[in-house]
Amino acid sequence: MARWRYLLQEAFIGLRRNLMMTFAVILSVTVSLTLLGASLLLSDQVDLATDDWVGRVEVSIFLCDGRVCPAITPEQQDELREELEAQEVVAEVFYESKQEAYERFTELFADQPSLVESIDPDILPASFRVRLENPNLFNVIADQFGAFPGVEEIVDQREVLNQFLRFTNVVRNAALVVAAIQLIAAGVLIANTIRVAAFARREQTSIMRLVGASNWYIRLPFVLEGVIAGLVGALVSWGLLYATVPRVAGNLAQDIELMPFIGVAQVLAIGPWLLIAGTGIAAVASVLALRRFLDV
């Protein structure tokens, strides 16, 4: 008990003695962990949206309307439908007429009237929209029906999704890289702060060494000093994310009904990771800083 009181007391003395440094350390840990947390949450968001979409992703089989290939006959169309429905991998088949395609288009781009006006209602092809039991089996459909008479093109909508995912991955990775760099910078700052603290108390530590204090007893106050600063930084960044992310996601959810959004639960879930990262980097930086400085 008395030991821990001593160790914590020494750590807080160190933190107070150099308030500016402590503030700088907490700030830099906060910035880096907020970025880290944001990228983790972005990744959560993407997973959430992907899960939701994958279930809805369809294969579009566009039908010939005579522009690039001979228009599909009603018999061919019925046959195609029957063949599709007979497939084991197919869960559902919908037919979308030219008119319906146009309506969906106008709906999708309702806020861009000039784009809608430039499109002739007749130009969008009719299609069979096929939902698969397993979206990964797109090739089965593509191979089998690509050459079917009256089929113009088969498009895997997953491709569209993949493009979106590639984009969000780039954003997320960029955030991760920046977060990692910031975290390293925070680590260097912590190491430097601890070195300064150890230097300021070198008299005390030299006495401790000569009266036979164990190594960890000499070092722990300094390590604790770093870890406490790291912990505070982590808590602040968690608080920042908690205060902003659910609100932003909520606002987006009102505007974009296309996909589900992350909420408080996800922000709470990343908390432990932020704490581990914050205290971990601080502990490692402190121990490294002390490695040569306080050797027996």
Partner: peptide, 19 residues
């Protein structure tokens, strides 16, 4: 190295500048 503290508990050290 980790036993050095045990050794030093057997030794008292007096400095010129008191410390």
């Amino acid at each position: 190295a980790w036993k050095v503290p045990v050794l030093r508990r057997e030794i008292g050290y007096v400095f010129q500048d008191f410390k």
